[in-house]
Amino acid sequence: MQHATSSRDTKAEIHRAAVELFSTQGYDKTSLREIAEQVGITKASLYYHYSSKQQLLRAIVGTFLDDIFQVLRLPETLPWSPETEREVLGAYVDVIIAHRATGPTLLRDIAAVLAAFGDDLDELIAQSRRFQLWLAGPDPTAADRLRAAAAVEAVGAAMSIELDLQAGDAEIRAVLLDAATAVLARRGSPVVE
């Protein structure tokens, strides 16, 4: 039983090292040897957990995709209301915060991610559009739909930049949720020309 715990810890260390190296050096320029060295294991030990760099990337990004799909599917079972909107947005923010270290890797090496997740990314885009439509509220105008997309992007900004903040997760969550709900609060308002 001890071995299973040790194995999970090693996988987590491998993930952290890979995310750090992929984010700073890029996916193509990072070798499995460098990841193994950073973790303090042999390359053979790394191969025990992941047979290739692409498999490691799939594991890292796959965890994010699993979590984000779970949140994006929430509106399928929940009727829209201001309370459920805030609840669902909160769940979305939580996933973004939990995976914010993965963001620079996703953006920096989009070609590698697309190669590893082409079909999943198509479904992610479709699910995200349905999520945004739900956030737009009942009988949304074109402006409401645009506001919903902007609210999602406001939250996603936490993944697109490296946040070197002294703030903790709770404060980051509050700021992102406030930003998204502020954008949505103008729902139904006419667009100023």
Rank of each mutant, 00 (worst) to 15 (best):
V155L: 07
A150C: 05
S160D: 15
A148K: 00
S160E: 14
L163N: 07
L165V: 15
D178C: 05
V175S: 03
A174P: 00
D178L: 05
D139N: 13
G156P: 06
L177F: 02
D178K: 09
Q166V: 10
L165N: 13
A143M: 11
I161C: 08
L146T: 05
R145Y: 12
A158F: 07
A154Q: 02
T141W: 11
E153Q: 08
E171R: 10
D164M: 13
L177Y: 03
D169S: 11
A151M: 00
D144G: 07
E153W: 07
A157E: 11
E153G: 08
L176W: 02
R173V: 02
A157M: 12
D178M: 06
L176E: 01
L146M: 09
A150D: 01
A151P: 00
R147G: 01
P140W: 10
Q166R: 14
D164F: 14
M159H: 10
I172K: 01
A142D: 15
R145K: 12
V175D: 03
R147N: 02
A143K: 09
G156N: 07
V175P: 00
D169W: 08
L165I: 15
D169V: 07
A148G: 05
V175G: 01
R173L: 03
A148I: 04
D139F: 13
A143I: 09
A157V: 09
D169G: 09
I172W: 06
A167Q: 15
A148W: 00
M159L: 13
A157D: 08
A154G: 04
V152E: 02
I161H: 06
V152P: 00
E171Y: 13
Q166M: 08
L163W: 07
G168M: 10
A149N: 03
L163P: 06
V175Q: 04
D144C: 07
P140T: 12
P140G: 12
P140S: 13
G156H: 03
L146R: 00
V152S: 04
A170P: 06
D144H: 06
S160I: 15
A179Y: 04
L146V: 11
G156F: 02
A148E: 03
I172R: 01
E153I: 06
D139S: 15
V152A: 04
G168V: 09
